[in-house]
Nucleic acid binder design. Sequence first.
DNA 1: GTTAGCACTCTCGTCTGTCGAGTGCTAATT
DNA 2: AATTAGCACTCGACAGACGAGAGTGCTAAC
Lengths: 344, 344
Amino acid sequence: MEFSDRQLAILNAIIHDYIETAIPVGSRTIARKYMPDISSATIRNEMSDLEHMGMLVQPHTSAGRIPSQLAYRLYVNKIIKEHDFEGIVDNHIANDFERLKGEMLQVVKNAARLISMNTNYTAIALTPQLRRTTLKRIQLIPVTKGLMLMVIVTDAARVKQKMLHIPTNVSESLMDELSFIISKRFAGQAIADIDLNLLDGISDVKQNNPVFFDTINNYLNEVILHSDSSDVVLEGVKCIFDYPEYRDITHAKRFFNLLDSKELLQKILTDSTRRGTNVIIGGEDNYEELIDFSVVTTCYKVGPRPIGAIGVIGPVRMDYPKVISVLEQTGKALSNVMTSYINE
Amino acid sequence: MEFSDRQLAILNAIIHDYIETAIPVGSRTIARKYMPDISSATIRNEMSDLEHMGMLVQPHTSAGRIPSQLAYRLYVNKIIKEHDFEGIVDNHIANDFERLKGEMLQVVKNAARLISMNTNYTAIALTPQLRRTTLKRIQLIPVTKGLMLMVIVTDAARVKQKMLHIPTNVSESLMDELSFIISKRFAGQAIADIDLNLLDGISDVKQNNPVFFDTINNYLNEVILHSDSSDVVLEGVKCIFDYPEYRDITHAKRFFNLLDSKELLQKILTDSTRRGTNVIIGGEDNYEELIDFSVVTTCYKVGPRPIGAIGVIGPVRMDYPKVISVLEQTGKALSNVMTSYINE
DNA sequence: GTTAGCACTCTCGTCTGTCGAGTGCTAATT
DNA sequence: AATTAGCACTCGACAGACGAGAGTGCTAAC
């Protein structure tokens, strides 16, 4: 599909105006505000053409027009291609993270809060994914007769704790011993590569206490395979009320249903962890639930390795340039903090 | 203030009807649905009296009447006095908790979810408060050169972890040693009673490595004094949309502002931990922010000792009997689970 | 003390007409 | 051939009118 320069300029003006005002924009508005040297009639003709090309939509006859999903896509692709994200990372953002160093969950939550405050949309984030990190250390701690706590420390200083049932009696010293052996054998390796069976020949726990061994082994395998929907973080949920498209309660309700079942967000964020910056406009890519919403995501890394993702969810009429830039900045700041641990 | 039996019956009928329908109720409705043997005119006279006594409010002339805050208070007081909460705990609720044993945070979250599902209001909860529990064990785990993880295990099997900076170099064996000494010295004591200075004479860490010692000591004191607003759990936020009083976006917004700044909820829940079941109706007790909302809370315990609270927030027109009963039931089930650890 | 009856009030939904913004088309202009 | 002025037409938003319905308060009768 080919557009003349003027058509592109008009399309751009319409998108800008609609993102700003949420009111369908008419030919006279464009003529007055954006291109005073051509008449509204001309613009009218161009708009008619643009509508036939599928770039504009008319809510009803004799209303202005609004950009179609396709138009947003075109717009976003151009932004992503042209925008230079290599700029300096906002120090304000970076400093804020430094302060929280060590509490990875808190750092990610704070990143989400910052994103929400800076963009005025609802921020979403995926906490560092264990299976994408490398092991620092494992520690088993007895809690009661039938319970022990397993603490997994990873290179991104992300800590995961899990309470495990132990049907048999296990001495504290055995836990300490196993903690030490596992940590020593697998430290520095990817969590995904941990296989307790490799301990054969190093330790005889598996033979002497198979139930205990299996409990730990099973949980580790679980951690390796699955990410948890509780890994999804939300911030600034109430922002949605600032946008007139959700003034109607039924729309607001749909939004909260989306956020409530975190599976979808988890999937999108997990995808983005692999793929980097990604924009889903109004239910593209078979995300039917997302009709009337747009989601922008990007990943953050430890060194060269992506381990989690951050993003924004809001109306299709979203300030994409700003959102993309805030996300990229925050992603970099986050990555810096996470990476700094590796070198310690 | 004295009421005749008939006045009380009418008041009750009005409250019931309004809780159910959210429509101001008129004299004819009462006559038709609740007391067919007296005429609407009589009821009209009684309602007029009740209004003068401050129990009813008229939104505008020629509309029905709605119960006043005072009327709800009267109603709730009677429920609390009369209702027998000693009934059996719903097994469905109890079983669900058994399954999650060990993950205290998860158990509390699940309790909140259950409450929300059973009442169709937004549930709030306070996780077990460390300063109200007794110590089982403390474990220090080195993470990187400048960071260590402190894990506190308490009798309610609540686990708290905190990443701490250590400016000086501390060996792993020193951490182990101190973990062992602290755990041994203070196990079984209330967290609030822990005072590392009591270690004088037992260990010389304080003298040999004052910075390390202070870091730990400071954090422990912090834990003892303050509860964290992140200890507040929310579930079923979207329930609010089911109630017509929040159809207007500005009301919904107020609700989300309340939930967003968790300080208020934290205060209410902390109060309830001390005081047991508590009902705040439409901004009573100087909770001005809560105008147009009601909050019902109760506590849960380990043995005889209350350590946290659960509750519900919703419209003033709330189904108090149901909410109170669900909360009491869930509170008991929660207490049972928590208490079962003590005896292990 | 209770109730029937009536005048009155207020909300809500429907209908109507007007206004303004916007469109599409045609003919004139450049 | 492209642009523009002009005009008829469409539609939503808004305001005012109006009746229906629900409710009240008061009075007089039971």
